[in-house]
Amino acid sequence: MTETLDPRDRLIVGLDLPTVLDAEAMVARLGDAVTFYKIGYELSFAGGLVLAERLAGAGKQVFVDLKLHDIGATVEKATRQVAKLGAAILTVHAYPQTLRAAAAGREGSPMKVLGVTVLTSWDAADVKEAGFREGPEALVARRVRQAREAGVDGVICAPTDLAAVRRIAPSPFLAVTPGVRPAGAALGDQKRVATPAEAIRAGADRLVVARPILSAEDPRAAAEAIVAEIAAAAG
């Protein structure tokens, strides 16, 4: 990494909750232990984009995880609207036309655009079923190269893909990874995972964690434990 980040800023807590009230209650419980939040599909469709703007206005960083993919003009205009919310990060699917459109849409704003390579819930069988001849590793590599060529800021990738991503695209190209599970945590629907320390050592800039924090008896303590693990791994 070319910048030194506070370990707290390297943890993004996914607010994968059904209502804005639930999300606001979780933000209150986490307090100053968390500085960065992700708002995805579920919460977005329940009023979460308004919450994203409020969180940004309150000094939090917000990752809007909409994984946009449409015709170029639509993606460009949608990206411009998300930037107006004050979001720090927006995701789009890592297809060349979509990447280029999002890069154009964020022009003039500080928002970062990240391309989603291969979902962490996909393995080789899922990639094949989707119609790709290449395996997950080759597909990720191709999409990282295309993201760099399109001029976006980085990618979303599984922690198991980080080493390959960093061989192609060292910092300051961003690598943000979901699929992070503390040792002993349930995997859920994730297939390509790592612990926080493993992901940081492999080259992740930021980690996205939801269920291990949201479902913890003490979410703040769970978040603080992950931040401590990040700090120790970063050295």
Rank of each mutant, 00 (worst) to 15 (best):
T35L: 13
M111I: 02
G57P: 00
G72Q: 10
A83E: 06
A94D: 00
E198F: 04
E198R: 02
G40I: 07
V144A: 07
I213V: 05
A164T: 09
P182Y: 03
K84R: 15
E229I: 12
A52W: 07
R100P: 02
E229Y: 12
A163D: 04
I39H: 01
G108N: 12
R80H: 09
A223F: 01
R148I: 13
R220Y: 11
F173P: 00
I226N: 00
G151R: 06
L85A: 09
D189A: 05
T74F: 09
A223L: 01
A185S: 14
G48D: 08
E129A: 15
A25W: 03
G108I: 06
A28I: 13
V50C: 14
V152M: 04
L66A: 07
A194S: 02
I226C: 03
R220A: 14
P196I: 07
G135Y: 13
G108Y: 11
P7V: 07
R80N: 10
V193P: 07
A221L: 06
L119A: 03
T160M: 04
D126W: 13
T19F: 01
A58W: 14
D9E: 15
P178H: 01
V82I: 13
H69P: 14
L55H: 02
G179C: 04
Q81S: 14
T195W: 06
G31T: 09
E53C: 11
D153M: 01
P18N: 10
A231T: 11
R167V: 11
G151W: 02
L11V: 08
V152H: 03
R220G: 08
A78S: 10
R80F: 04
L55W: 04
R148Y: 05
S121K: 01
V227R: 00
L214R: 02
E149T: 11
D161R: 05
Q81I: 13
F132Y: 14
G31M: 02
F173K: 06
A183I: 11
I12Y: 07
L55E: 03
T19I: 02
R133Q: 15
C157G: 07
R106A: 05
V113M: 00
D218H: 02
L90H: 04
V34Q: 00
V50R: 15
K60M: 07
T177K: 05
K128L: 14
V34D: 02
A175P: 07
E137K: 14
P219I: 01
T98S: 11
F36V: 10
A232S: 13
A232W: 12
R166D: 10
A94Q: 06
V75M: 08
E24V: 09
V116S: 01
A104E: 11
E42M: 12
P182E: 03
S44F: 12
R206Q: 12
G59P: 04
Q146C: 08
S121W: 00
D218Y: 03
E224Q: 13
A101G: 06
A221E: 12
V64G: 00
V13G: 01
A52E: 09
